[in-house]
Amino acid sequence: MTSTILYPVIALSALGLLAAVVLYLVAQRFRVFEDPRIDEVEEALPGANCGGCGYAGCRNFAEALVNSESFEGLYCPVGGNETMEAVARILGRESTAKEPQVAVLRCNGSCEYRPKINQYDGVSSCAVASALYGGDTGCQYGCLGLGDCVEVCTFDALHMDPVTGLPVVDDDKCTACGACVKACPRNLFELRKRWKGNKKIYVACMNEDKGGIARKNCSVACIGCAKCFKVCPYEAITMNNNLAFIDSYKCKLCRKCVLECPTASILEIGFPPRKEKTSEGVGEARIEKEKTKGTDA
């Protein structure tokens, strides 16, 4: 009776011991040397493996940081300056601070403003639809609304708004990793300077068509009239291909351009509401739009 219990126990223990010895020897013999700082740096990184830094994952990025001379071109947008400082401490270098950023969608063409002219019936992928044709509205620059960006966001910061059919960025969750910027086949996402209180002013349009055509296809399209360009006191606005662009690093949030825009394609978000008074008739379009609009994008 004892033997039937004892022998297997002894045999298995012996086997286990033998395996342990072999494993130990093999591990010693075939050890690969690795800079121990890589582990430390990886520890300091957020560990989201989002690829926002341009590397496949945090481990790769840690290797790149350790092996590089300086931090030139290496930045973890998710961890931000804090993380980079921690990494700098580990490696005994200086870190260069960057201003925090946030992603914005440069399209406001919801179903209401941008009527559908055909129905898309392929797979639910912006990449596939974009390779196929100009989209289910007349605007071939705008959001396709199939959610490739939502799919790639590892931080749960993007969601489709079922009413507008456009993705919505959750500013508090967005880490500006840039995954959506890469995923969008229409290049509608832009990483902009993050202002206090998540205040934002930007041109929510990428339509390069001539004014009339753009307007016909989408009532909140930028028509390239350059009124905002003229009114901007800080030279933050540039005009290119019938399209205005506000540089978020030059913009001082004066909101003059917002009132000027005849199609209300410049959005202001995170500001207290304006008084319903317009000076010299400008900004009528904006107020008109706001009356019919629900929540802002």
């Binding site: 392929g122 797979v123 992928s125 990449a127 596939v128 390779a131």
Partner: peptide, 12 residues
Amino acid sequence: RPLLDYIRLGKA
């Protein structure tokens, strides 16, 4: 299944 849709994308 939309086989070709995705294959075409992968091919591109």
